[in-house]
Design a protein around this nucleic acid. Structure first.
Length: 616
DNA sequence: GAGCACTGC
């Protein structure tokens, strides 16, 4: 049954054509901007055409998978989890009756991997007849890998149907890669957005942002403002200056300033979504670009920059640095102004600067370390990962280095074949070093300690310090400090959190993020469940020396020595100089030998999550 | 006084 709403969507007129195209082709591409209805309608069309077909639809984000399933369920007037369901980490809402499953890209990759524990030959996702990869234009590592796996699978399963869905960009590239000519472009009815550039180059985008917002506020008709900035620091600066200027402006028109970035505790984030009596301006990071939609936005101001994480192959360090946005990103930001009615976008860069921007951002698979991806590929049964046909081939040297690291972690043998240990490692949702650590820690009888440590190290934004109160950070860390180790100190925090009765006030007292700790507890439970496959006996010691010894071996590529002449740490692998991060218990302490989880260049090269060891 | 964008298993 099609209700009236569904027949009025722009995609409805393509219904028969798309059904026919799926019948005639193994792989088809459907391109259309957000709002054309492709994600909710196509799976339903396929189901209505043949109710026996099982369909998987992947999404880059959990929330999207969950809300889309809910939306479709509502349209089909069925209970969520029956005909239509979703499957995301920590939450499987499907049943035997489920025909359409929305799931995250990562979950579908996991299904390939879990196949090896059932039967090495059964990695063909036979439970699905149609697999839809949505938002492929975002080019996440997961969706790129899935496209490669499905391209392969199509040769072995002739009945399988694959649909790639994306925004209307890079369509030819996808079509060439997937060797298909079945392309459908869906026009959506969207509101126009008028774009204005500044006439001359701006020196300081924080200042420029403040001026633009105030001018907009005092001269333009009603409608909320969404401002794109690059991080917490910019956002706090702009907020402070805005509030100050509003105070001295002597104007009647009030302005509500809200912030939105992922390190902000969820309850504070919520304020950005609440309707405001006065005009509202939301100062946001990228989070508002795709992940989150705010209603009522009519004006967008775009600073033109974004922080991008990349992996420097030679130096083997991560960087998180400011970069100009891509044209596609600038369009995406502008589009956020036209969701409900005609909108306006103000760019704090000149038209000439815009012309010189890259068309698209470099895909993630060409910018990140691939250690865990390579292990996943081996676990899925790809013999030669170096020649595996991906839409963009990563750096050969990097992949080779990753393969050799996996050999050292005993995940692969010297011929790069997956070992039993590697198979176990790949079953855990962790970076390979941590999978290795957890399994070894179990074998040494310190599993409980290791599990607490690993679980809490997986979550970000453990602490939330408001501006002005930040001098207390080291004081709080000192309360939990154990054995000159962030790994053990954080394990201690999780343990104390578990033991305490009033968890909320415990968090408040210690500037801890309650939601983050709850997530750490879910991670812990999940890891415990996955480890059941491996665990045979239980034997528990509280041995910090053993802990450090096993961790040091797992982090064998992440050792550093203090160099007094440089007043900094020298990384053993590359001789790169680095400093201990201010959020570490070892900040300002200068122990001679340390191991660390991560080295990242922001304002300086920092070692994050550090533990002192006796020797290298 | 320092200080990490976003997402996923």
């Amino acid at each position: 049954m099609l209700n009236e709403f569904r027949t009025q969507l722009p995609i409805f007129q393509f219904r028969e054509k798309i059904i026919k195209s799926i019948r005639d082709n193994q792989v088809i591409i459907i391109a259309g901007e957000t709002g054309c209805g492709k994600t909710t309608q196509i799976p339903q069309y396929i189901y209505e055409n043949d109710p026996n077909v099982k369909i998987a639809v992947t999404q880059p984000r959990r929330l999207a998978a969950m809300t889309l399933a809910e939306r479709c369920s509502l349209e089909k007037q069925t209970k969520l989890g029956q005909l239509i369901g979703y499957n995301v980490r920590f939450d499987d809402c499907t049943s035997k009756e489920t025909q359409i499953t929305f799931l995250t890209d990562g979950m579908l990759i996991r299904e390939f991997i879990i196949g090896i524990f059932v039967d090495y030959k059964d990695q063909q996702l036979k439970r699905y007849d149609v697999i839809i990869i949505d938002e492929a234009h975002e080019r996440t590592v997961q969706s790129d890998l899935l496209l490669g796996l499905l391209k392969n699978l199509c040769r072995r399963r002739k009945q399988l149907k694959v649909i790639l869905m994306s925004a209307t960009m890079q369509i030819e590239k996808f079509a060439n890669y997937l060797e298909t000519e079945a392309i459908h472009i869906i026009e959506a009815r969207t509101h126009t957005v008028d774009v204005f550039n500044v006439p001359i180059r701006q020196q300081d985008y924080v200042e420029s942002m403040v001026n633009t917002i105030l001018q907009l506020h005092f001269t333009q008709p009603e409608g909320d403002i969404l401002a794109f900035l690059t991080g917490q620091e910019d956002i706090e600066d702009v907020k402070e200056i805005l509030i100050e200027r509003m105070k001295i402006s002597n104007q009647e028109k009030q302005l509500d300033v809200k912030m939105l970035y992922s390190a902000l505790p969820p309850e504070v984030q919520l304020e950005a979504f609440q309707k405001s009596v006065h005009r509202k301006v939301v100062l946001a990071t990228n989070i508002a670009e795709t992940s989150i939609t705010i209603d009522g936005i009519v004006y967008v101001v775009d600073c033109g920059y974004v922080k991008i994480r990349s992996f420097q192959i030679g130096k083997a360090i991560d960087t998180l640095l400011l970069a100009p946005v891509s044209k596609a990103q600038a369009e995406q930001r502008a589009g956020r102004a036209g969701r409900q009615r005609q909108g306006q976008c103000y760019r704090l860069y000149t038209q000439q600067t815009y012309e010189r921007l890259a068309k698209y951002m470099l895909p993630e698979i060409l910018r990140v370390n691939l250690l865990s991806v390579i292990l996943q590929m081996k676990a899925i049964g790809i013999q030669n990962v170096l020649t595996f046909d991906l839409i963009d081939r990563p750096d050969m040297e990097l992949m080779l280095a990753n393969l050799n690291q996996l050999v050292k972690l005993k995940a692969l043998d010297s011929e790069f074949n997956l070992t039993e240990h590697g198979k176990n490692m790949s079953s855990l949702p962790l970076e390979p070093q941590f999978s290795h650590f957890l399994i070894k820690a179990y074998e040494c009888g310190i599993f409980d300690l290791a599990l607490n440590s690993i679980s809490i190290l997986q979550v970000e934004n453990l602490f939330y310090f408001q501006r002005g109160t930040k001098e207390s950070m080291q004081k709080i860390l000192a309360k939990f400090k154990i054995a000159n180790s962030d790994h053990l100190t954080k394990a201690n925090i999780l343990r104390k959190y578990e033991e305490t009765q009033n968890k909320k006030s415990f968090c408040k007292e210690n500037c801890l993020n309650h939601k983050t700790l709850q997530k750490a507890m879910s991670v812990k439970q999940q890891l415990k469940d996955y480890m059941k496959r491996i665990i045979k006996k239980e034997f528990e010691k509280e041995d910090y020396d053993k802990f450090k010894q096993v961790l040091s071996e797992a982090l064998m590529f992440k050792h550093a020595v203090y160099s007094p002449s440089d007043q900094a740490y020298k990384l053993k692998q590359t001789n790169q100089l680095a400093y201990i991060h201010p959020e570490s218990v070892l900040f300002n302490q200068k122990p001679k030998y340390v191991i660390y989880n991560e080295v990242i260049l922001t304002k300086k090269v920092y070692l994050r999550d550090v533990t002192e060891i006796d020797e290298l």
